[in-house]
Amino acid sequence: MPELNTSSLPDLIFSILFFFMIVTSMREVELKVEFKTPQGTELEKLERKSLVSNIYIGKPTREFRAKLGTQSRIQLNDKFADVSHIREYIQDERASLAERDKPYMKVSIKADKDTQMGIITDVKMELRHAWALSIVYSATSR
């Protein structure tokens, strides 16, 4: 039986490996706020990531601290934002979904444990006005 030449197999596998390494290290957004999500027990997994829009709330990272201080800030996409920008953001996110997926849109609030409720409540109020009523408080399991 003739032997199969497998000398190119490592190269092949390597290229798949590199593909995965590159793809996985790609985040959708560069985080400009630091957050440590709270821990809970009644969590459910988020399926279908394409339906989820993220709102990050936390302290600005070190490089922005000089300019913005350590007060909690909201980040939408890759920019700092104000509460008043949320409605527009939700509309954009909703517009990017397919028509049949629109009712299943979810908003994940990734907020730092030490945030005060004021900012969260403002965000929630804006989400209600934008009719994004299905929300998830992102957390890690305890």
Binding site: F14, K45, A132, V136
Partner: peptide, 28 residues
Amino acid sequence: SFIMLIFFLVTTSMDTDSGLHVRLPNPP
């Protein structure tokens, strides 16, 4: 390389987001 490939495959699928699902009331 196979081992590394499998390692990356496994670790990436573990990174799923979870949280407390809540339904907000209609806007006032």
